[in-house]
Design a protein around this nucleic acid. Structure first.
Length: 248
DNA sequence: AGTATTTGACCCCG
DNA sequence: CGGGGTCAAATACT
């Protein structure tokens, strides 16, 4: 008997949780098909527990994120070397936040679309050394509404077909845009686009086939809370998204 | 008018 | 010291 490494054990635990989550969801699908939505909430809770367990396993190491000391007006930090310029604005704290650590939890994927079902607000763009295309910085649109700390970076890496490298940081604790909108407000055109976007997103996760892609899928799933599920057509996510959960 | 994006300033960290 | 992440004023959009 070869002793299993902690990594292997963790991976097995995560796999168990995800497989269980998959089974629960299949049950839920059957249940909803039979219009017995009474115990659906129980199943949803089980599903969320499974994914949350798996997610916490994935993020337990290296996720010691520095709390964002959001701009306290007037409290200059110890450095405080605001450059002297004619147009200097007093108490300008631009760029005062700590640089993101490489160890902070992140996942990367390469997609043909930047759409991922979440609402993002662009807050910056930078030219990157030795890169043909600029890198764009996005934060969750609900950063302040729902204190959601998720961010992502998008950088085009290839033309024809256009491929974007998208790096996600943090996890959404908000309800995503798609889930906030009542189903009847989504036009058929938007609906089919959403499906394509999701398919592309999930397929790209499959292509990446590493721990991080798995984390991305799981973090996406955990944003489906009870209220969201009330509004969303679950069958939309039924056919394709689990193929991304298979371990390679 | 309210909201989103652009863009240069600012500064942390390797 | 400079690359790159974030801020926020200016600008564009709806």
């Amino acid at each position: 008997m070869v002793p299993q490494s902690p990594r292997t054990i963790r991976k097995r635990l995560i796999e168990e949780q995800l497989v269980q989550g998959k089974e629960f969801t299949v049950q839920l699908q059957t249940l909803l098909a039979n219009h017995k939505s009474v115990s659906a909430h129980d199943l949803i809770i089980k599903i969320l527990t499974s994914f949350t367990e798996a997610l916490s396993e994935l993020t337990v190491s290296g996720s010691k994120k520095a709390p964002e000391s959001d701009s306290l007006i007037g409290s200059k930090d110890s450095g405080g070397d605001l450059r002297t310029k004619d147009k200097q604005v007093v108490q300008d704290r631009r760029g005062c936040h700590g640089k993101r650590r490489k160890t902070s939890d992140s996942c990367m994927r390469e997609c043909t679309t930047t759409e991922d079902g979440h609402a993002w607000r662009k807050y910056g763009q930078k030219v990157i050394l030795n890169s043909k295309y600029p890198r764009c910085y996005y934060r969750c649109s609900y950063k302040y509404d729902q204190e959601c700390g998720a961010t992502k970076q998008v950088q085009r890496i290839k033309e024809d077909p256009i491929i974007y490298r998208i790096t996600y940081f943090g996890h959404h604790i908000c309800k995503s845009r798609a889930l906030r909108e009542p189903l009847h407000q989504i036009t058929s055109e938007e609906d089919s686009k959403l499906q394509l976007d999701w398919k592309d997103f999930m397929l790209s996760s499959h292509i990446m086939a590493d721990d991080f892609s798995l984390e991305g899928v799981v973090s996406s799933m955990t944003s489906f809370d009870l209220h969201g599920l009330d509004m969303v057509d679950i069958s939309k996510f039924g056919d394709f998204h689990f193929e991304a959960l298979e371990f390679s």
